[in-house]
Nucleic acid binder design. Structure first.
Length: 295
DNA sequence: ATGCCTGAAGGGTTCAGA
C-alpha cells in the first residue's frame, strides 16, 4: 500500500498537477493539506475525476484557508473531522481529518504556522500540537502499556525537527519552525512511538519538502523538511521505501511543497510471532528488513 | 529587501504563508 501526503497550496490551482501525479504515482491513500476550499466545493471540483480513478474521499474544508482531505482506494471508514477539544484562532479551523484506511488510522494534518515566536498564533500552534498529541495517543495507545495501534500521522507539521531539516540554521534564528518549544511539541508526539519514516530511510541526506517560491530557492535546493509521515512501529516496520517526490515541485504551476511517499508491505497475517523492534534511526534502513510474506 | 512569489477574497488592495 502506497501512502502519500501533499500540501497542495490550493487544490483548485493544483488540479493540473494533482491528477497527472495521481496517475503517475498511483498512491492508494493521499493526505492533502491547504485545499483552501469548502468541503462542498472540493466535491464539485474533484468528485468525478477521483471516482474515475477509484478514490473515495473525505474532506474537512473551510472557505478561504486551511482545509485537509484524505483520498483512498484502500477503504475509508470511521472518518473524524477535527480533534477532540481542538483549540481555535479563535474558532477551530479545518486542520485535521482522520480515517481508517486499510486497517490503519490515517491522519491528514495541517499544523498552524505560528507566525512569530511568542505571538498569539504561536501559542495557538503549541496548544494545537498538544491536542493532536492527545488525539493520537488515544489511537496509538500508550507504548508503555503495550497497546500500540496502527497509526500514520501525515502532513505539514510546520516544524523542522532538527537543524539538518533546514538549509541553513543561521537563516532561521528567531523564526518559527525551529524554536525549542515547537521541537519539543513534535518530540512529544513522536514519543508516543511514532517513527519518521523518511528520516529513518535517509539518516544523513539533505532532504527537504518545502521551498519558498521566491528567489529560486527550489533550484538552489534551499528548503526545509516540514512535511512528515510519522508511523507507529507496527506500520513503520512495514515500510519498504520512503521518499520525497521532488519531481512534483518542478515545472509549471507547482505547489511550494513536494509530496512525501511511503510504500508499505502487506500487513502480517498474525502468525509470525511478536513484532520485531524497528531499526534505530542510525541503524539498518527499514527498506532492507524483510518480514515473512503471508501466503 | 523581513513579501523577492503565490493564492484568496473582493474591489482598485490586503492578508496569509514559513
Amino acid at each position: 500500500m502506497r501512502v502519500a501526503t501533499w500540501n497542495v497550496n490550493s487544490v483548485k490551482q493544483r488540479v493540473p498537477r494533482l491528477l497527472p501525479w495521481l496517475d503517475d504515482r498511483q498512491p492508494d491513500v493521499v493526505c492533502l493539506q491547504e485545499v483552501k476550499l469548502t468541503s462542498a466545493a472540493f466535491g464539485e471540483l474533484l468528485g468525478e475525476p477521483l471516482a474515475d480513478r477509484g478514490y473515495a474521499f473525505a474532506v474537512h474544508g473551510q472557505p478561504r484557508w486551511n482545509g485537509v482531505a484524505v483520498l483512498s482506494r484502500a477503504g475509508l471508514d470511521d472518518v473524524r473531522a477535527g480533534l477532540p477539544d481542538e483549540p481555535g484562532f479563535p474558532d477551530p479551523e479545518a486542520r485535521a481529518l482522520s480515517a481508517l484506511c486499510g486497517g490503519i488510522r490515517v491522519y491528514s494534518v495541517y499544523v498552524p504556522n505560528g507566525r512569530e515566536p511568542d505571538s498569539e498564533h504561536y501559542r495557538y500552534k503549541l496548544a494545537w500540537l498538544a491536542a493532536l498529541r492527545d488525539a493520537v495517543a488515544r489511537d496509538a495507545g500508550n507504548p508503555a502499556a503495550g497497546a500500540a495501534g496502527e497509526v500514520l500521522v501525515c502532513g505539514d507539521v510546520n516544524i523542522a525537527a532538527t537543524d539538518a531539516d533546514v538549509f541553513d540554521p543561521a537563516a532561521y534564528v528567531g523564526q518559527t519552525h525551529v524554536t525549542p518549544p515547537e521541537r519539543a511539541a513534535l518530540a512529544e508526539l513522536q514519543a508516543l512511538g511514532l517513527r519518521d519514516v523518511v528520516r529513518d530511510r535517509w539518516p544523513d541526506d539533505r532532504v527537504f519538502s518545502y521551498w519558498d517560491y521566491r528567489a529560486g530557492m527550489f533550484q538552489k535546493d534551499l528548503g526545509m523538511r516540514i512535511d512528515l509521515i510519522l508511523a507507529t512501529e507496527p506500520v513503520a516496520f512495514r515500510a519498504r521505501a520512503a521518499w520525497i517526490d521532488r519531481q512534483a515541485r518542478k515545472g509549471t504551476g507547482p505547489s511550494d511543497h513536494a509530496p512525501v511517499i511511503v510504500d508499505l508491505d502487506e500487513a502480517p497475517d498474525g502468525d509470525i510471532g511478536p513484532v520485531v523492534p524497528p531499526p534505530s534511526s542510525r541503524g539498518t534502513p527499514p527498506g532492507t528488513v524483510r518480514l515473512p510474506q503471508s501466503r
